[in-house]
């Protein structure tokens, strides 16, 4: 990829923001009319602890070039400690992704409090530039290796193992 292409590359970044701190902070950034790069699209979850690592894998597989996760500061979680759970999973996931050949810089976890609209702006801008420098994540060969989509494969397998229905 030439430098010119890289400059014109618009990364697609999926963000998962917790309802109570980071999503509210993003709302605050809006109310305060802080402008930032349009590359990040936010999905609201109630708590960063809800983030199943498969959501991140799914986002990359669907074509995201980066994934941003936002939660409450340590000690501030609306559900006591969901953000710590998120942190634990994040660390493991990051190692897993790098083993798959996905650069560590494509995934980021940030603690952003409800009052930190400016931090939303800063983090989104930084993340966009960081991913832009890395260039697009081309997972095409990998996604072709996957079998056709079947819903709840994992759950079905368990049920079958237990001799259950469906």
């Amino acid at each position: 990829m030439s430098d010119n292409d890289r400059n014109h590359f618009e990364p697609r970044i999926v963000a998962f923001f917790c309802n109570w701190c980071t999503y509210t902070a993003a709302d605050l950034a809006g109310t305060a009319r802080m402008t930032y790069s349009p590359n990040v699209r936010v999905i609201r979850i109630m708590c960063s602890g809800r983030l199943d690592p498969q959501f991140v894998l799914k986002a990359f597989r669907e074509g995201a070039d980066g994934v941003l996760i936002g939660g409450c500061h340590p000690g501030d979680c609306h559900y006591q400690e969901g953000n710590y759970k998120a942190l634990r999973r994040f660390k493991l996931l990051k190692r897993f992704l790098s083993q798959m050949g996905i650069e560590e810089e494509r995934i980021r976890l940030e603690w952003i409090a409800a009052s930190e609209g400016d931090k939303v702006q800063k983090v989104i801008n930084q993340m966009t530039e960081q991913v832009r420098k890395l260039g697009p994540l081309n997972l095409e060969p990998i996604s072709q290796m996957h079998p056709p989509k079947e819903k709840n494969v994992k759950a079905k397998a368990v049920a079958m193992a237990k001799g259950g229905a469906s």
């Binding site: 602890g49 809800r50 983030l51 559900y79 969901g82 759970k85 999973r89 994992k154 759950a155 368990v158």
Partner: peptide
């Protein structure tokens, strides 16, 4: 209270 931490952790998607 609906945080969903358990849901993210469930290995069988139950």
């Amino acid at each position: 209270k609906g945080c969903g931490t358990c849901v993210a952790a469930c290995p069988s998607g139950a």
